[in-house]
């Protein structure tokens, strides 16, 4: 389609909208933080933030809630980015959970996610006293996210009330909160998975190598293929391990992140594979499947 000089392409419109949102946060809140999950959406958010505040450094820190079950490559990538781009990195893990030896294998995804991720996140937010928390959720990911505001109000207990959301009109965002309350802000709400990938391609944004296909040791676990990332994969499972060409469509805790068979080793190949795919991105995430409406419940509880 031919677009006149005065009309920005869809990616440029989305980019401008996201930059606007990020600046609004920096201007209106006294102690904002950006969630950094090390995945592709986080990589795009980081890139957008670097654009929004150039030539300055980021005016807020990046927060990673480390569940201690992340892929090895994610941790390496995270630390390298922090070094290269010079942003402040805050890493938090739930010590109680570590002491309890919480494991997705023995406790299940529900308990693990609740303690290491949701509780860990709450601890980190309380410790930091952040009044705005910028996250990389997109509305196309899941049905309950389709209704969430860009500036999403949370009470003192970080809870979301889906039936009592603030109206959000035009690009005028209500940033008013009382002490102890906070706002979750989602600058890439209106991006789709395809937009994200196209943007990564166009802007040459660095992403972890896990997104690209290579030979990996995988095992079948609860109907999904997971990678044998370390010796914590139960013995009997490890016995079934075999090498396959796989990649990951989303990144998270390795026991909860399904690998897909793939030969896509470049960005265009990944995008092609995505376009031809017949299953949605979250299928690889085990936590959504626990129960119908699972994400909505987790969000009400304070999960992103």
């Amino acid at each position: 389609m031919k677009i006149s000089k005065e009309r920005l392409t869809h990616l440029k419109q989305l980019e401008a909208e996201s930059i606007h949102i990020l600046r609004e946060v920096a201007a209106e809140f006294s102690n904002p933080v950006m969630m950094y999950s090390v995945g592709k959406d986080s990589s795009v958010m980081l890139h957008l933030a670097m654009k929004a505040f150039a030539p300055s450094k980021l005016p807020f820190p990046m927060l990673h809630v480390d569940t201690k079950w992340k892929f090895k490559e994610m941790i390496e990538f995270r630390d390298q980015r922090a070094k290269d781009l010079g942003f402040d990195l805050v890493v938090h893990s739930n010590q109680e959970g570590i002491d309890m030896d919480i494991s997705p294998f023995s406790h299940g995804s529900k308990v693990h996610t609740d303690i290491m991720k949701t509780q860990g996140l709450k601890q980190a937010l309380n410790a930091g006293g952040y009044d705005a928390v910028i996250g990389g959720a997109r509305r196309d990911e899941e049905k309950s996210r389709a209704k969430e505001r860009i500036f999403s109000f949370r009470d003192q207990h970080h809870r979301w009330d889906p039936k009592n959301q603030r109206p959000e009109l035009w690009n005028v965002y209500n940033t008013a909160i009382a002490k102890g309350e906070s706002v979750r802000v989602f600058p890439i709400s209106n991006w789709t998975e395809l937009d994200i990938w196209q943007y990564i391609y166009l802007e040459s944004i660095k992403i972890p190598s896990l997104y690209f296909a290579k030979e990996q040791e995988v095992v079948e676990y609860q109907g999904t293929k997971i990678r044998v990332d370390d010796e914590r994969v139960p013995e009997e499972l490890r016995k079934t391990a075999k090498k396959e060409m796989v990649r990951f469509r989303t990144l998270g805790c390795y026991p909860l992140t399904g690998a897909i068979n793939s030969t896509a080793t470049t960005l265009p190949e990944i995008i092609k594979e995505m376009l031809l795919s017949t299953s949605s991105e979250r299928e690889g995430r085990l936590i959504d499947k626990d129960q119908e409406g699972a994400m909505e419940l987790k969000k009400i509880e304070g999960y992103f």
Binding site: M1, I3, R7, T9, H10, L11, Q13, L14, Q198, Y201, L202, P268, E269, I271, K272, L275
Partner: peptide, 13 residues
């Protein structure tokens, strides 16, 4: 795919 990407870079919204 390369052609596809070039075409889709210039989408309107």
């Amino acid at each position: 795919i390369i052609n596809y990407l070039q075409e889709h870079e210039n989408k309107d919204m």
